[in-house]
Each structure stands twice: as C-alpha cells, then as structure tokens.
Amino acid sequence: MNDRPKSNRKLLRSLEPYLWLAPAMILFAVFTFYPFLETIYKSFFIVDALGNLKRFVWFQNYTYILSDKVFVKAIGNTLWYTILTVPISKVFGMLLALFANKRRRTSVFYEAGFAVPMAMASSVTAMIFQLLYVPSLGFLNGFFGWKVQWLNNPKIAMISIAVIQIWLSTGYAFIFMLSAVRSVPQDVIESARLDGASEFRQLTKIFVPLTSPTMFYLIITDLAFSMMMMSLVNVLTDGGPQNSTITIMQYIYKQISATGNYTNANPAAIIAFILTLAASMLGFLWEKKGVHYQ
C-alpha cells in the first residue's frame, strides 16, 4: 500500500520535464512537424493545384527543379545574399554597441535611433526604400546627383536589397550587442588598460571574445532568417532583373501563389531546409572553436 503513491510520485517526477515541454511540443507538432513531414512525403509526388497527389515519382521532382536554371540561380542568390547581409550587419551592430557602450547624457536618443529599425516590418521598409531608390525622380539619385539604376541593374539589384536588410538587422544586432558589451566586466578592461593594451587590442582580445556567445546566437538566428528572405524581393523586384534577385523562398512563393505548383514548391522547400541546416552547422562548428564561454 505504501509503495503505490511513491511510485506514482516517481512516475510523475520522471514525466515532469515532458509536461513543461508539452505546450511547445504540441504546437510544434501541429503547426511545424506535421506539415513539414507532409511536405517531405508530398515532395515525392506530382501534386496538382488543388493539392491532389497525382503520381509517385521518387526523386524526379528534385532532379526536375535542380535542372531548372532559375532554381539553381535562386540557390546561388540566396547564398550570396546571406554572405552579404549576415556578417556586415553583425559588425555594424557591434560597432554601434561599442560607440554607445558608455552611458552619456544623450544616450537615450541615439540608442533608440540605432535600434528602432528592428521594429519595422520588412514589407513596409521595402516600400520606403522603393521610393528612395526611384532612379530619375527618387531621393537618393536626385539628392546626390547620381544616375544609379538601383533595382533595374542586374549587377546592383541584389546589393541594393542587401543594404535594406543590413539596415533592418543592424538594429536588432545592436540591441543585443549593447547589452553584451555592457556586461563585459569593468575590471577586465581596467587591467588591460593598465597593461597598456591599445584600443584595437582591447577590442580583439576582450570585447570580441567575451561577446562571442551573443554573436553566436545572433548569427545562428539571422542565418536562418536570411536563407529564407522573400518579402523584400517580393515588393521590390519580383526576382528580376534577369533573375538576379530571385531567392529560394521567392521561387517557392512564385510557384505557390501564382499557379499552386506544389510539385515544384515542395522539393524546393526541402532543399531550402537542408541548405539552412548546413549553414547552421557551419555556425555550430565555429562555436566549438571561436566562441568563448566564460
């Protein structure tokens, strides 16, 4: 008789962590895992616009889209975009955080100024830059007397879009880096200063290593985000000119929204997932070597 409640309690205790996890896992299961597994399954089928599975074709859908020049271009563009945006926005975020590190009288103003872009929706931001980028009558060219075709020149278009993304995610990086920089112990900096370390040495030997865990978090989340970018392209270029700005997500979106072509969209999504996973793995590799935990 005495044993029962005890084993019950034991059972409860061993179940406890799962109970804490249950809400998150149930929601993930319903809204991410289940549909994603379904996507994997369906990626082996010809699927018509109404979602009916027509024919099982093994990996044919994969080979079909991988032989599509536009899709291959989309993969290249996506990687290029990620390389353009992720490191630069992190470096900018770090620099801004260093500028703002010391609290000064006007801190409140410029801290807010640096961070506010993180509150912007990317589609909305895209519209504002669209206006700024207008070649003949827009502000940028008009004010500086340039004649740049920001979004119509296939060589520049992706960079113009990357600039917007950098603008958006620098604010996000800044706010995280600011707290990381501020939590570097004062005595560490003091002792370095006493040792006569230059500002630059302080940066590379103290600030960079001690804030690397935060940087790691930012890079991992931003990698996934950049690999799945679409909204900017959607508003600004629709993938053009000459497919110079088409990203994997934009490719998928076009397949889905225009003709409901899941036959192409499903395998493309799986490929996007694998690529993002691979990119994140690289991030985790760096964690092993370059990230310093106190």
Partner: peptide, 17 residues
Amino acid sequence: VPNSSTTDSVIKDAMIA
C-alpha cells in the same frame, strides 16, 4: 496563359535585353 507570372518575367527580361 498558364503560369503567366513566369512567362511574364521571361518576356520582360528578354525584351529589356
């Protein structure tokens, strides 16, 4: 035109070139 969003980009790109 089926898949006209794609054909539209194709034509646009070709005609700009």
